[in-house]
């Protein structure tokens, strides 16, 4: 069971001019295995949500198109092995929800406010499975219970009757109800406060352990990524800047962008000195950063020089930690290590 994205490039054209097009996702390689949580960390506007949508081919048609690449899925329990980009529209409907499902960022806007939550969940089941309404209800109640919501009592509730955390759990129930192989979670905890986001994270972790689903966890918060994921991809302006084992990346970041990100977060560790100036990354992520011919982080980098004025390739190394068990990909000419993988 695996999901492999190879060389995926997605183009976004804002104007009519062909030169205006930018690659929101650029030559991307990503893989998720069974029972693995992979997080994609990046700031707003970096294209990480766009990537999540592109995996399901839900990227807005007309303004964006997938230029090249393949998204291979292999899922034994649903008996499917295919390239998503080559599927016909009706086959794609089968993939969405049944094989790869998605949790969206804001539970307040992604549930239908005029439908009972039970109906919304059974609707998802009935689209994909030929079973009676009563059976579908049983499944829905089972999954709601599983998410620590009293399924029978809450089946007939409307979204407004639930709290933010409960709504997000309903969303997760809806995503898990068809027992998919993969789950894309697009900032599921951003709209929630600390204590409820903790509950949701714990729940996602539990689901992973019990049903062995592979999870792509999109977030802008490195601390959240750290708490949940096995591997992390640091995403900036449509490119992977650095990827590897989460713990190793945080303890020993290689790319200047990752270094700056980690430095700019205040910490709770006992040796942290409060009230000093926080490190900040100068400038903003702009449309020009997506253009070719230089490192995409060039305009904001503290290590930049003329050597960065080329397209930078992703190079692979072995991490020194854990006996060289993990692989680290870095897109920076300034980073060097002996343990190169060719």
């Amino acid at each position: 069971m695996s999901l492999d994205i190879n060389n995926l490039t997605v183009e976004l054209c804002a104007g009519k001019d062909e030169n205006e097009c930018i690659n929101v996702v650029d030559t991307l390689f990503l893989s998720v295995k069974e029972g693995e949580v992979v997080s994609i960390v990046g700031e707003s506007g970096s294209g990480k949500s766009f990537l999540g949508l592109s995996i399901l081919k839900l990227n807005p048609q007309g303004v964006s198109r997938i230029v090249s690449g393949e998204i291979k899925i292999k899922c034994k329990s649903q008996n499917i092995e295919a390239d998503i980009l080559k599927l016909k529209p009706d086959e794609l409907t089968d993939v969405r929800g049944k094989i790869i499902s998605m949790i969206f960022q804001d539970p307040n806007t992604s549930l239908n406010p005029v439908m009972k939550i039970g109906e919304q969940i059974t609707e998802a089941i009935l689209v994909h499975k030929k079973i009676s309404k009563k059976e579908a209800k049983d499944i829905a109640v089972k999954y709601l219970n599983y998410m620590n919501i009293d399924g029978l009592a809450r089946f007939n509730s409307y979204p407004y009757e639930l709290s933010g955390g409960m709504r997000q759990r309903v969303m997760i129930a809806m995503a898990m109800v068809l027992n998919p192989c993969f789950l894309i979670a697009d900032e599921p905890t951003t709209a929630l406060d600390v204590t409820t986001s903790l509950q949701v994270l714990k729940l996602i972790k539990e689901i992973k352990e019990q049903s062995n689903v592979g999870i792509i966890f999109i977030t802008h918060d490195l601390t959240v990524a750290r708490s949940i994921s096995d591997r992390t991809y640091v995403f900036y302006a449509g490119q992977i800047m650095e990827s590897g084992n989460t713990e190793n990346i945080i303890n020993n970041p290689a790319h200047p962008y990752t270094v700056s990100l980690i430095k700019s977060i205040p910490s709770l560790s006992p040796d942290y000195v409060p009230k000093q100036k926080l490190f900040n990354i100068s400038g903003y992520l702009t449309k020009d950063d997506f253009k070719k011919g230089k490192c995409r982080f060039y305009s904001r980098c503290f290590k930049r020089d003329d050597g960065c004025l080329n397209d930078i390739a992703l190079r692979s190394f072995r991490d020194a930690e854990n006996g060289g068990k993990y692989r680290r990909d870095v897109r920076c000419v300034k980073f060097n290590s002996d343990a190169v993988i060719k």
Binding site: E43, H220, L261, P266, L278, Y284
Partner: peptide, 13 residues
């Protein structure tokens, strides 16, 4: 975002 929030916090301080 994290990087921008660091800028704003520094400014406020």
């Amino acid at each position: 975002d994290v990087s921008v929030s660091a800028q704003i916090l520094n400014l406020l301080m």
